[in-house]
Design a protein around this nucleic acid. Structure first.
Lengths: 226, 226
DNA sequence: ATGGGTTTTTGCGAGTTTTCAAAAACCTTA
DNA sequence: TAAGGTTTTTGAAAACTCGCAAAAACCCAT
């Protein structure tokens, strides 16, 4: 869960950052409006926490910009001003929620979660297969490992999907040849080996633990170790 | 815009009802939990205002029920209790916002509007589908990108609409052929490619980022990158 | 019927993916 | 540790997929 905190008061921002990280949010902090704008537009945050009073640009204006460029990223406004009219202009600028300083940290977290929950309810994640930290998104047709996006070719995808649907089971070359390549009888081919190699390069090469194991004389398994 | 107000204090409920009606909301009021439940489940409200302390059933429990039955109808909680932990249990029960009594009427209206706006941004309430800076006006039958108006032919329109209703999902040629052209079995045609090409010329050619991606061997996706 | 726009077909070049085949690396057992 | 069998890696050829332009067919309003 990625959060961008836009706040110039060191004390407040580090308080928030630390607290959110303990809740295992990934937090970026921006101290002024221009940096914030660049960050917000170049990356995809799940939610943005925005103080109204920041250097560089007015918080309301920044909010408007963010909402124009990324309407689906929720913004929660933060401020010391507290009259209703201030809240209203925050909402007018497109903010999704509003929090008055000083606030209780738990309330911030609760409101963040509501905003994120709301969004992910609509995005409605398609089917995803998992094994350890490896994920395969069947709709987007991409794999993830440690949040790194891994593109796969069609055959690689089919092969990996098969393994993810048969975790911990040793699968023989001939079964793979049959199920993935539709090779019904023994030809002299080594496609399976070649593709296992390509898959490993994408999925295991740069990561630990290795997930695709060889069982000599038997086949391959999707498994952590031995 | 239909609002259900669940509140047993006559004074408060009629204050809200009158105020909201002046803002041209259509307001129903329920004085106890059971009536509220029946009303809420039998009609479609745009937003529900729910007092925690009501006769008949606990407000938190009612909130949970409402959220289970109609998860997309936003609920805003109202209460005199004001500690953070109360707010948290409200959010846990699935509330989308929280307001402490006594509140300023303008703030209630502002928060209601935000909740409704948020929903209509996600539900295909209005007649506009969006993805990034691409918009498709279902009534005027035109697309926009960076405020440039793009005219589409009927087939192009249908095709783009399908993508906008399935963002981030890789869609195979055969699915497109079936859903858009009603081609049920494999003919040797390449209409899909040709139309993707035409769509791209209108929608992606002169803009960044490109939104229509090819996944060789799999299909096409409406997506920013990768 | 004519003409403008839309939809579909045709066909080929460009770029990727997939396969093949041979060499290198690796295991296992004697 | 040497030999034989397995597995991995590599590079290049073959097969395939996709993009694109242009032409043909179609549709509809005039």
């Amino acid at each position: 869960m990625k959060v961008l905190v836009i706040e110039d008061e060191q004390q407040v921002s580090s308080f928030i950052k630390q607290g959110l990280e303990e809740q295992s949010f990934a937090v970026d902090v921006a101290f002024d409006g221009n940096i914030a704008e660049r960050l917000a537009l170049s990356r995809d945050y799940d939610v943005i926490v925005l103080d109204i009073v920041i250097p560089g640009i007015n918080g309301f204006d920044l909010c408007r910009i963010l909402k124009r460029e990324k309407p689906s990223t929720p913004v929660i406004m933060l401020t010391t001003l507290g009259t209703t009219s201030d809240k209203l202009s925050g909402f007018d600028a497109g903010a999704d929620d509003y929090l008055l300083k000083p606030f209780e940290f738990e309330e911030l977290v609760a409101r963040l979660k509501v905003l994120v929950r709301r969004r992910s309810a609509t995005t409605d994640y398609g089917k995803v297969l998992r094994f350890e930290d490896l994920k395969l998104d069947l709709e987007k047709k991409v794999a993830h490992r440690y949040d790194k996006i891994i593109k796969l070719s069609a055959k690689e995808f089919t092969l990996l999907e098969f393994f993810l649907r048969n975790p911990q089971r040793v699968i023989s070359r001939s079964e793979l040849a049959e199920k993935i390549w539709d090779i019904k009888f023994e030809t002299g081919t080594n496609v399976v080996e070649v593709y296992m190699n390509m898959l490993r390069n994408k999925i295991d090469r740069d990561f630990e633990p290795k997930l695709l194991q060889t069982r000599i004389g038997m086949g391959y398994v999707l498994s952590k170790d031995i």
